[in-house]
């Protein structure tokens, strides 16, 4: 029983990180219909920037995260401006390849600049707390709480502000949004900014319990894709729910099935989903 609760909590932690990454991915997909293969690289950059801010510049954890959000968000905006925007009329295969190009560059850049070795991120929240006889690390609790706060803020932004409303409007109908005078360029840039920021938050939160290395985004992005297919491409609640579902299934799978193959769970889930329903679980209408 204790193991189960421990594992459920671990699932909640991993799920929070996944949900944040998947949220960024699904927002971009909703607005621009681009599966941003470079999103994992943004996640990785977020980890490195936070780490560098803390170790090189001696910034506090939270300030380092803030800097990271801004910088990674800017990288996202640059991507939109210089790559995806010029390609908006191109065949769909092109923006996928372009995204892969960015991904390859950023990973090579990280390896070149920060080195290939695994680095650990210090955290002011290394303590262990006992709750009802169970041990939790503060960092894990922090991840869960911070993710919830971020999601709540995002929700408020999308629902209560004008800019947020335009994002929703555009994800529902791009041409329509254009017609009623929404500046689609601005919305696209803003979305990439948010998407990058979310990736930076996710990696900065999870890095102290995982590690920072150039390939840290690869698995995460693959899983984020699985999540948004699970939750419906472009769906915001779907990304959150999907993130937690995957988090739980992985941590339970690792305990009760096999730790070696825990990473494969997501992909087997995906293969099953797409076999049964090629357009994803909760997609409305069809691809066609």
């Amino acid at each position: 029983m204790e193991i189960l609760i421990q594992q459920l909590f671990n699932g909640l932690t991993i799920g929070s990180v996944y949900a944040l990454v998947a949220l960024g991915l699904t927002l971009v997909y909703g607005i621009l219909h681009i599966p941003n293969f470079a999103h994992g690289a943004l996640y990785m950059m977020g980890g490195y920037i936070t780490l560098t801010m803390m170790t090189k510049f001696g910034l506090h954890y939270w300030i380092a995260i803030f800097v990271s959000i801004i910088l990674v968000g800017l990288i996202g905006v640059l991507m939109e401006r210089f790559v995806f925007h010029p390609l908006r009329e191109a065949p769909p295969i092109h923006d996928k390849i372009a995204a892969i190009g960015i991904l390859l560059f950023l990973e090579a850049f990280a390896q070149f600049y920060w080195g290939a070795e695994y680095q650990s991120m210090p955290t002011p929240y290394g303590q262990v707390v006992q709750i009802m006889g169970l041990t939790f690390t503060m960092q894990r609790i922090l991840i869960v709480v911070a993710a919830l706060v971020v999601m709540l803020l995002l929700y408020l932004f999308l629902k209560k502000t004008f800019m947020g409303a335009t994002i929703i409007a555009m994800s529902q109908n791009r041409e329509g949004a254009n017609l009623v005078g929404v500046n689609t360029n601005k919305v696209a840039m803003l979305t990439f900014m948010i998407s990058g920021g979310l990736a930076a938050i996710a990696s900065s939160l999870s890095s102290p319990i995982n590690l920072v290395f150039p390939g840290m985004g690869q698995l995460v992005i693959l899983k984020a894709f699985v999540i948004i297919i699970l939750g419906g491409m472009g769906s915001i609640p779907g990304a959150i729910v999907g993130g937690y579902i995957l988090g739980f299934s992985e941590s339970l799978g690792a305990t009760y099935i096999s730790n070696d193959y825990k990473d494969i769970i997501a992909f087997i889930l995906l293969v099953i989903i797409l076999t049964v329903k090629p357009t994803g679980l909760f997609s409305k209408g069809g691809q066609h």
Partner: peptide
Amino acid sequence: MLIFGPVLTLLVI
């Protein structure tokens, strides 16, 4: 990939 990554992106554009 420091070079080929951007090359890939620039090529498709």
